[in-house]
Amino acid sequence: MPTAPDAASAPSGLYVPGYVRDHDTHPPLDHPGYRSTALRHPRRPPTLLPHTLTEITAPVLGEDRVGEHDHDLTRGHDGEPQGQRIIVHGQVRDSGGAAVPHTLVEVWQANAAGRYRHTGDNWPAPLDPHFTGVGRAMTDAEGRYRFVTVRPGAYPWRNHRNAWRPAHIHFSLFGRAFTQRLVTQMYFPDDPLFFQDPMWNSVPDPRARERMLARYDHDATRPEWALAYRWDIVLRGREQTPFESDEEILEDDE
């Protein structure tokens, strides 16, 4: 944990509170079950980087990065994509519970048949002329985001014999600090493919895995139009300053 230097030892210093470190949450970079990690993980242990101004800041991206219909993956083509129409929504918060407002959320996914519109994806499932599979949204003042899309299909890959990825949507978030940057995947409840998926199982703590799981949200469905899933995302929060910690203890005693 960073500590504030006393003024005498650092006359020109500028101390800023950092962000909590959340190693327990994340998968290891070396995960033999996911074969491609073998040549793509550093061998040297990482060097601790204190959080300075560069790490507690991030690009403040404006609404101009997002078009009016970018949150709706079913639009922008001559017709509607095949598949089950769904609403995916949720709130982005930090680990202190504060909403993360006005931050960019980017998503990409396979179509309903499990095929990506990508030159590298050649498995024999159909492309959908009405689906590209990319979306963008800014969170609102309460950190909420909302996408309209179709439920992605599962797809095979060559990691192990008869390997299939559970249905998922790729998510990318900026947060308000370099330390908060997160790229992850959202999964659907009751997927039968988790048992053999090294990505899902790379997260060591089973409770942390569950945090990648959306829940069916009947209240957010639109009758005769779309089913809905809710997925809340938690980014790292700010370290408490010693002063604030003291306050917390007092509050807890009340």
């Binding site: 202190g96 790729h170 995947q185 929060g237």
Partner: peptide, 20 residues
């Protein structure tokens, strides 16, 4: 202060070019 556990990271995968 309540502490909410964070969401795990996952790989960008081979099709990152669609979204990023």
């Amino acid at each position: 202060m309540s502490t909410h556990p964070t969401t795990p990271a996952q790989t960008v995968g081979p099709y990152l070019h669609i979204g990023l």
